[in-house]
Amino acid sequence: MNIIIVDERTNKTKTVAFNGKTVKDVLQTLKINQETVLVVRNNEVLTSNENLNDKDKIELLSVISGG
């Protein structure tokens, strides 16, 4: 399936194709540590086992401050 990713750090949007089902799967595909981001879909914070659907748009919010 394809997921649209909006990255708060870079302020960029990209589409990622992956074979998994969940938030955890997509973070593993992107090689992003779960400790470093919050994942939000439609203004709702998602836990790692939440299932994603094709063409879902998710936002990655950085946990780590930039200072």
Partner: peptide, 9 residues
């Protein structure tokens, strides 16, 4: 830190 970010959000 993750909980602080979530709280602020």
């Amino acid at each position: 830190e993750k909980e602080v970010r979530l709280y602020a959000l």
